[in-house]
Amino acid sequence: MSGQPVVEMRGVTKRFGQNEVLRGIDLTVNRSDVVCLIGPSGSGKSTLLRCINFLESYDGGEVRIDGRLIGYRDEATRRPMPGRDLQAMRESIGMVFQQFNLWPHMTALDNVAEALIRVRGLPRATAADRARAMLAREGLTDKEAAYPARLSGGQQQRVAIARSLAMEPKLMLFDEPTSALDPELVGEVLQVMRGLAAEGMTMIVVTHEMGFAARVATRVAFLDQGRIAAEGTPRAVLHDSEEPRVRQFLQTYHERNDF
């Protein structure tokens, strides 16, 4: 099944009340793709990302993971999928949040081991061993016993990444993973993500880090008002795009970073 896309979105729409957040999204993500979603705030980037693991339900169209519709039993009746099936699909989709969302009442080690125990059903000791290995990979061995409140933002985000990776996902979703970090802590998180991309992880990244998008992404999609206004290689979108909205967005971005 190597030819099948990991994620396939077709005509996905979503509205919050009167507000149409997604107006027909088509997006295909193949194995080992790194797709960066960029665009102004409120353009629907995060909502799009959250539809992929159905943290957000979508109203129209379809989202398929490895060919399987997520969230609904079938596209015709659109009856919600049984909770267990949804949980099983989510197990193989990792997600990293802007606010890290580590559980504050658990140590770094327990944060990583918890899903292995509760979701995978691994014995406690096996789960702890795997969690230890995941933290070691991130160079966080000395932080195993630390509670999230004692970690820097960058460390928290790396623990959160380790927590997702421990489940051996086939796809990783990143929702502005560095936006809540102090500037000097952004690098360590981006470095981990770059490493993941190099290992061939399939990734979808909502980000404002244009440098990361330019260097690491295999494709960049620019969202504006719930539509993908431009999509292509980083070069095609970030340098050569004639689309005025893209140019305007990138210009404000450049102005902000010029001093």
């Binding site: 989510r90 899903a115 509760r118």
Partner: peptide
């Protein structure tokens, strides 16, 4: 949401 995303029931 973090728990849901990991497949928690």
């Amino acid at each position: 949401e973090a728990a849901q995303a990991l497949g928690f029931g």
